[in-house]
Write a protein that binds this DNA or RNA. Structure first.
Lengths: 192, 192
DNA sequence: GTATATACAGACAGGTCTGTCTATTATCAA
DNA sequence: TTGATAATAGACAGACCTGTCTGTATATAC
């Protein structure tokens, strides 16, 4: 049984993701969640705090999903890295998160709406991306890369490029384009 | 001498870029531009129309700048392609457009705020990205790539990845990361 | 000088936004 | 049963938003 707070955060995330942060009013969240306004302000001090909670939930949700997909695909680190791009394609096609069609990356969107790098939402987005790079770097090290951090940065950059291409231009195949590049990059980084 | 209309579009672009579309009110644009409200509504039917005009101006401004930088760098197609990433780095460092510090790509931001792919602002963003890919494909063909369109898509994806990495994580060096990958990709695509 | 076009300042309507408040209802423990 | 907790509906204030309107000033063309 979901708590009222969970209901709010889930609904907020879904709407913020689909329609944007500024464009989504508190009242819309409340109506969709079937929750009274005072309940929201009992759990959160402001809309900003709700935004941060939604981003935090998305961070957990997304990384759990991504790492799960990668680890399910293979036990080999190199294969796991490549599996990231297969997972991305599932996401781009709208099959990854039920109730949430693909609308790009909510953290990229947040950084766009809250451009100031010091804004909590921007910092949260930055942190999310960093956690993913860290995870990739660990896999790169396991795979025996000469410079695991450099390779992880490259793969992360390919991931961001694929996300933007899929969203802005509506090309889910961008995942395949990125994967093809990733193969070359990884091979080059492993051939010591 | 800039017309009132130009003044409006320039100011709107600057504010929309720095603060977002929904977060920027008409009144702020008017105050900064020193223009009366009725003048705005004589030139544009709505805020949406002003947004589209600002995106259109940015499309011209940005592509002129980028192509200029690339063509200034070298006459060789391969070198020109690589020069794109040097130009990106200038941009990320805030040295490309005076009066406009780097806040990511306004078209990526627009696609985030106007998630519906049919929204005019989203379509405009898609079109901008397509025009750049077309330009890259022409250069790729000149460089003798086996599949110029495929290579152009790859390079464009690297560009988007670099932009997002620079903005969300605050790492202007992402341009260098992308350039290193681009070199490998191009070499592979030219070695028929 | 007069007509026309353009822009100005500023009030205004009608709507939406966040956040606060009150008064009521449901739930559950002792 | 009583008392505490949590959630409800809905009104409200104050700010901000877009877009319209009026009346005035400026400048150019004839």
């Amino acid at each position: 049984m979901k708590s009222r707070r969970d209901e709010l955060v889930d609904t907020a995330l879904r709407l913020f993701y689909a329609q944007g942060f500024h464009a989504t009013g508190i009242d819309k969240v409340l109506a969709e969640a079937g929750v009274a306004k005072m309940t929201l302000y009992k759990h959160f001090r402001s809309k900003d705090e709700l935004i941060l909670a939604a981003l935090h939930r998305r961070d957990e949700q997304f990384r759990n999903w991504l790492m799960g997909e990668m680890e399910r695909a293979s036990a080999d680190p190199r294969e796991r890295l490549l599996a990231m791009f297969d997972a991305l394609e599932e996401w781009f096609e709208g099959r990854a998160f039920k109730g949430m069609g693909f609308s790009g990356c909510v953290f990229i969107n947040a950084a766009g709406e809250f451009a100031d790098a010091d804004h909590p939402a921007h910092r949260s987005s930055c942190e999310h991306k960093r956690l993913i790079v860290d995870y990739l770097a660990k896999l790169c090290a396991d795979a025996g890369a000469r410079d695991p951090h450099a390779l992880a940065e490259q793969l992360a950059l390919l991931k961001e490029g694929a996300i933007v291409t899929a969203q802005v231009r509506g090309i889910p195949d961008a995942a395949k384009t990125a994967k093809a590049m990733a193969q070359g990059i990884i091979d080059a980084a492993l051939a010591a």
